[in-house]
């Protein structure tokens, strides 16, 4: 790029701005990470000695393990179901023109705009009425509702980049609608589908408010964290926080990577 029309002062200010934004966002998380490895009981400066005792304490707490296992199971199921639903909704939008499509799209993308407290309360009221409250299944249902729109948005974006003739070209070359789905639409959307799996899992993994309302005794990890906080302030929370943060970041970064991946030379088997 030409350097001719660039003001160095603006360049430096922009860099500073980006740096400050990241510092602001990540400072609390970094602090939490630092204190999780500090031997002091209370977070205070100067730091005490290095210690992994809080991680050991967390690792030996059966309630944490139970919460983690709930979270992971729920996360996997939610990501699969939400991505499948999201794909269906996105493909419907891509392929068909029908009366009321705008309304259909608005409704499909609505859940993330509802305040989670209201969604949580509504879910609790509804699920208890149909006899589904207080189970892992309740959290799954609630999280699918919350995350499917994300999956849809990601896959829809990918499908919108597809040459509109591609599917018809597959039919023209002898592929039935199912074969075209399997051999053309799914391979084309594959990066977005993988990304949707990771993102929906990350959202489910982190989600607290709705899970708190509907989970009952089957607490997920974020709900367990609140339990800790209500009991006593303990650096164990920093340890769990660090773990949850790293997991979510990993999922989100994976999603970014699959979405950005460039086509590779000579794909040996399509």
């Amino acid at each position: 790029m030409s350097e001719l029309n660039r003001n160095p002062l603006i360049d430096w200010l922009l860099r500073l701005y980006v740096l400050a934004s990241f510092a602001f966002i990540f400072a609390p998380i970094a602090a939490s990470f630092v204190f999780s490895l500090n031997e002091d009981r209370f977070p205070s400066l100067p730091l005490g000695g290095f210690s992994t005792q809080w991680y050991e304490a967390v690792a030996t707490d059966p309630l944490v393990w139970e919460g983690l296992s709930n979270t992971l199971t729920i996360g996997v199921i939610v990501s699969l179901v939400a991505t499948a639903l999201g794909f269906g909704a996105a493909y419907t939008d891509y392929r068909y023109r029908f009366f009321g499509k705008t309304v259909y799209l608005a409704l499909a993308l609505l859940p993330p705009t509802i305040p989670v407290i209201i969604l949580g309360l509504a879910m609790l009221a509804f699920l208890s009425r149909v006899g589904l409250s207080g189970q892992s299944l309740s959290v799954i249902v609630a999280h699918v509702v919350m995350t499917a729109p994300f999956a849809m948005a990601i896959i829809r974006l990918r499908l919108s980049q597809m040459d509109p003739d591609l599917e018809a070209a597959a039919w023209n070359l002898g592929a039935s609608e199912w074969a075209a789905m399997r051999h053309v639409i799914l391979p084309f959307a594959r990066p977005a589908i993988l990304a949707a799996l990771f993102i929906t899992m990350a959202v489910s993994f982190d989600e607290f408010a709705v899970a708190w309302f509907v989970s009952g005794l089957n607490e997920t990890l974020p709900v367990r964290v609140l339990g800790f906080l209500q009991g006593q302030v303990s650096p164990r929370i920093n340890a769990i926080g660090t773990f949850v943060f790293l997991t979510s970041m990993t999922l989100v970064i994976l999603a970014q990577l699959v979405l950005m991946r460039r086509p590779k030379e000579g794909n040996p088997d399509g």
Binding site: D163, D165, A168, V184, P187, F188, N267
Partner: peptide, 13 residues
């Protein structure tokens, strides 16, 4: 049919 856009499958070689 040979398409105006060619409609080659980008994920296949």
């Amino acid at each position: 049919m040979v398409w105006q856009s060619l409609a080659l499958f980008p994920f296949l070689n």
